[in-house]
Design a protein around this nucleic acid. Structure first.
Lengths: 200, 200
DNA sequence: CTCGCTCCCTAGCGAGCGTTAGTCAGTGGG
DNA sequence: CCCACTGACTAACGCTCGCTAGGGAGCGAG
């Protein structure tokens, strides 16, 4: 029926994956479809059997990633009430994701501006949702006397972007695993909101 | 002699400045020379009276910025011996620079990969110089018992990238000035290296 | 006034881009 | 065994890119 058969062929997933790698490496505008095709050992027009356009590739990557971040966040924080507990798990999954999904993170953070409207605005709204949710945890923690920061907005920016940047230096074949990085960075986050100064 | 006269004309500095703005907005590959020309109210080929190539614009931006970061660092740390003192001032100038030179920071961090070799490698080497210098301060502080971190490398990555990201959210017309942001972020950096846990 | 320089202009080159049309070989189902 | 279909191919489209060539207007210096 939907047979890929034994013939040498290419799947939609393979196209998306290769695009992801190249977009992360050279950026959306810096990557030509001919390069994606070459990496798949196929002629450029053949890509159109597996996608609608170059822009659609970027949209799929961004949408999937942003959705994943939000799902992660809710799964990690739901049922937890203590601000320390909520922040701990929110940062843990966020940091871990940036070690395990490096390419996605790089593309989303660099090339969201290359998305066509109105898709771009929709994605930015979703990103702000996560940003506001994290900031709310910090604000709640300050109000409850568990955290000590002058500006929850600044602290939440610092924590978020610190995690995002993991994608820029982390190496899969390095000496340190995603879980370990995530834990260390979560420690940093708790330091930033002043847990070390207050004492847990 | 080198007269711009009273005629409506354009300077090399204006071209570089407009390129900087547009590169920061849409990226190097996402910006066409025609867009730079349009912003300057000039036809595209006229740009070549003030530059040699599009690539040269990027090289100038990156070189000037990287050089500035390194100069800042040395000016801020020279003569200081105490790790806390050195880290404090190193982070202060680094964070401040990313609030006052947002466009430069965005371009350097996003588009260094669009530099042609061997220039790209040279710039990356200079960037690593700053990275290693900051890491050395942390390592020294740990050895001296002033800081407490498991991995100086991780802490230095976190601090650096946290500062870099200021460029991505800071607004010149916002309620908070560069100096204030820099001070807050320097506090965060000291938290990360464990000053809050040890006590100053 | 005139010479020479600066700098913008129009015209156009060659290359590469994303994308479409139309063809055909190989494959699995009946 | 044949037929329909998937998915690769070649050819070519219109467009935009970075960049060059060559001409001409405005300016300061003498």
């Amino acid at each position: 029926m939907t047979g890929a058969g034994t013939r040498d062929t290419v799947t939609s997933h393979a196209v998306l994956d290769t695009a992801l790698t190249l977009f992360a490496e050279r950026g959306y505008h810096g990557t030509a479809l001919s390069q994606i095709a070459e990496a798949l050992e196929v002629r450029t027009p053949s890509l159109y059997n597996h996608m609608r356009s170059k822009q659609e590739l970027l949209q799929t990557i961004v949408a999937d990633t942003v959705r994943g971040v939000l799902d992660d966040f809710h799964a990690a924080t739901e049922g937890r009430i203590e601000p320390v507990d909520r922040l701990y798990h929110a940062v843990l999954v966020y940091a871990r994701r940036h070690a395990t999904h490096r390419r996605e993170a790089i593309v989303v953070n660099r090339d969201t501006s290359s998305l066509e409207e109105p898709f771009r605005s929709q994605m930015q709204a979703l990103r702000r949702e996560h940003e506001h949710a994290l900031r709310a945890i910090i604000s709640d923690g300050v109000a409850a006397g568990r955290f000590a920061v002058d500006s929850p907005a600044l602290a939440s920016f610092a924590i978020r972007e610190m995690c995002v940047s993991i994608a820029r230096w982390y190496q899969d074949d390095g000496p340190i695993g995603p879980e370990q990085v995530a834990r260390e960075y979560t420690e940093f986050a708790l330091d930033i909101v002043g847990l070390g100064r207050i004492g847990s």
